[in-house]
Structure formats: C-alpha cells, structure tokens
Amino acid sequence: MNVTFEATRELARRTVSDVRHPDLDPYTLDAIWVLYDRVLRVDPQRLRDPARDRFLLSKGHGPSAYYAVLAAKGFIPAAWLDTIAHLESPLGSHPDATLVPGVEISSGSLGHGLPLGVGVALGLRATGFHDARVFVLVGDAELDEGSNHEAMAFAGTAGLSNLNVVVADNGSASLGWPGGIASRFDVHGWSSATADMTDHDALHRAFTTAHPDRPHVTVATTRP
C-alpha cells in the first residue's frame, strides 16, 4: 500500500467516531507521517529486524493517526481501521504492541514512553546497533509527568545520541512551560530544534538535524 498524506488523513478519519482522542489526531498525524514517510528505517516485512529504527508513541492522543500511518505503510490492513475499539479488534484507544504489527510499545498511560525509549536506546548501544535510532513522540502536557524529567536528565548526561524525542506542543499543559519546552531539554545537554507541526519539510529538517554526541528533541508546535 502506497498512499499520500491526504489519503492517510482519510484513513485516520475512518477511526475517529469510535476512539476517545479524535480531536488532536490531525496534528499528531503530520509528525507520525513525516517520520514514517521520510525518516524511519522500518519495513513491515522485517518487523523484528534488530537494526530497525524504533518509533514509540507515548502521548495518549494519537492512536488514530498512528493506526492510519501503519495502514498507509503496510503494517496493518486498512480494514482494521473500521473495527477500531470493537471487542475483537486489535485496535483500541491506546495501542497494544502485542496485538498490532509494527507497534513498538503498548502505551496510553503518560510518562512511560520516554523512559522506555531510554532503555531501548541503551540496549541498541549495548548490542552494537549503532545506526538504529529511537524516536519517542510525547505531548507537551505529558511532559508534566516527572518520569520524563528523570529520563531527560539521564539521557542528556549519558549522551544517548540515538535517542530522539518529538514533543507535539499544542499548548495543552495546564501550567505551561515558561522559557519554552526546548529549554528544559537544553539544560540537560540535548540538541533541540523547533518546527511548525504542519510544515512537513520543516519537520523533516528538525527530525534529521545532526546530533552526533547527544540526544535530540524536536518541538513541533501547533495552536489549534
């Protein structure tokens, strides 16, 4: 299956009447689409390839977009999208890695993806897969979870250059982030970039910014 971004957006719309987090999917979709279309080295025919890149969806608002991209890229049948949230469906409001091909982590509870991503990045480094990268998509409100800050501090100090974080920043954090989200990563030694969430070329540039000795965060902004 080889479809366009616009067609993928239509795929995502097939799910939104049934899932709990439909309203923010259009913004998340841009980031996940650019990653799968232009950045990630993943192949639905080699799901367990140890050298593959890993995409970890951590934010809770995003499964419709994620499933749509997985369908667009041939990881799951598009017909699954019409069954979402049904009892027998492998697709729910939060993805289950044991049920959905291509999904790297089961997620939904906020603040788990980035610590898991740190572990995966450590594991790839320990096992010699130095070219494999980890991308974790989190929300700006999700950054409230303290587990993220444990992970941010450690990853920066450890120089986990194979770790990448994408923050979908729609200004939903209740208390906000004075000084900007990127500054929170900067103080821990991360590389950082910002991009408009709807500008795919800008997202691509931000995602592929060279960061040879440190982890990298892209703050993808949108204001609905």
């Binding site: 610590p115 898991l116 995966v120 594991g123 320990a126 303290g146 450690f154």
Partner: peptide
C-alpha cells in the same frame, strides 16, 4: 547507573528488555 530515579530505573530496564536484553 541512572541516579536516584526509580521510575527511570524500571522504565529503562523495560526498554532494555524491548531491545532484547
């Protein structure tokens, strides 16, 4: 050693398991 970060301790261990360790 992740420092005094127990959520990360377990989360990172979980990630290592995902990476096959």
């Amino acid at each position: 050693n992740v420092g005094i970060r127990e959520q990360l301790l377990v989360g990172a261990a979980g990630g290592l398991a995902l990476a096959g360790l």
